[in-house]
Design a protein around this nucleic acid. Structure first.
Lengths: 227, 227
DNA sequence: TTCATGGTTCGATGCTAGCCGAACCATCGC
DNA sequence: GCGATGGTTCGGCTAGCATCGAACCATGAA
């Protein structure tokens, strides 16, 4: 009874404290060095080196050398999506982290998911885009309509070069805390980038949390006509 | 740097050959007894008992006693979706099963994903439903339109009782072989049930493969106006 | 060249967890 | 009641693997 690809190896890799520490750290989107990751995970450099080799070998993360530093990042946003998907099940089955941090409400409201926005606000944005006909379901899950293209252009996001990138331009990503979809892919990444560039929000140090200024949140709500 | 639910435990559970054997067997949708699962996984009854206890404890599977038998099934189609999601990443990263079975092409064409249809045909069906406006994206990912409701009624599927069920009525599930979405949830389950009831297709013994008769496939293609 | 810093390799260690044999409990059919 | 079958519990064995100390390579700075 052997059906489909072998998922054991992937799951076993994620099923280790240290490696999950690494993966969730990289879920923040920033590329980190081996030593930084060792600190995050609380192990020695030898140990992290072994783990990073395994993760790289399985293509869950990718490495780039710069001088004597080696920067690691998630290999693909597929991996990010898988991690969020796992969190969804973990959340539902009650495997909530014991020492729940006081940051939790902030995480729920807005956080980084690899390179795009996740959490309550991002789900509302996604809803709004669908409702106004900017996004439409297609064969590949999701597509930007002409309407949507005009909308993004008006707000300073040029969608043409994004669509020419090799990576998926526009995809729906399931949000573990909201259990609803938010916008991912190149377009999702561009949107987050824009929000940060406009200084509507800033990233918390060493965390996935994204904090909106009062005015920034109002701007976003106005832009997407949220309640 | 502790963010979000703890995914380690879930991943570690899936990251074991025997338990994955169990989970993928249950992905076929049929509830199986402990002894059957022991045979599938190729271990003794003591061993499977321990594994089943762990999986049950983590709420990945659920158990129902009937006389001296204990039937196990996946706890939720969230779990099925997670497994398919894992297969997607495993597939992409090249972790394809070594002894790839000759059944593979059949698996790609049509297979069971917990309780609904997956594979090439199911993706085409999903596309068709979206294209004709039977399905629409909504806050919860997907919704049946009035149009769609009439369509399913016409083909002998009463959607009203399905919508009253507690489980998700209508959801999109990512297909690992096609990397596109197909229909899941109560509606997806009802559709598969209908296809089997009409004898358009039958399930292969001890496998997830679904085989369409020539006439059955034509009927489905006609029903959904596929090419 | 020399030293400091970032990373890797190797070998040894210790813990975890999967596995089975044996014994035991529960249910069914007789 | 009694045997047969389905499943669990317990104890002990073993293997795999995460971890670290120590030594080693690579790069950059002085």
């Amino acid at each position: 009874m052997k059906d489909g690809p072998s998922i054991v190896r992937i799951a076993a890799l994620i099923g280790d404290h240290t490696r999950t520490e690494v993966l969730t750290a990289l879920l923040g989107g920033k590329a980190l060095t081996a030593t930084e990751l060792a600190d995050v995970a609380g192990v020695t450099r030898q140990t992290i080196s072994a783990h990073l080799a395994k993760l790289t070998d399985a293509r869950l993360i990718a490495m780039e050398s710069q001088g004597r530093h080696r920067y690691f990042r998630l290999a693909d946003d597929d991996v990010a999506q898988l991690l969020e998907s796992l969190m969804g099940v973990a959340f539902r089955t009650g495997a909530v982290r014991l020492r729940s941090s006081p940051r939790d409400p902030a995480m729920r409201k807005a956080r980084v998911c690899y390179d795009h926005l996740a959490g309550e606000l991002s789900v509302q944005i996604f809803d709004s885009l669908v409702k106004r006909g900017a996004l439409a379901v297609s064969a590949d899950g999701l597509a930007l309509t002409g309407n949507g293209q005009r909308f993004f252009n008006k707000h300073g996001i040029d969608t043409i070069p994004l669509q020419q990138q090799r990576r998926t331009f526009c995809r729906a990503c399931l949000d573990w805390s909201e259990r609803r979809h938010h916008l991912a892919g190149g377009l999702g990444a561009a949107l987050l980038k824009n929000i940060l560039a406009m200084r509507w929000a800033k990233r918390e140090h060493d965390s996935r949390v994204v904090t909106f200024s009062k005015q920034g949140e109002e701007s976003v709500r106005a832009m997407f006509r949220l309640g």
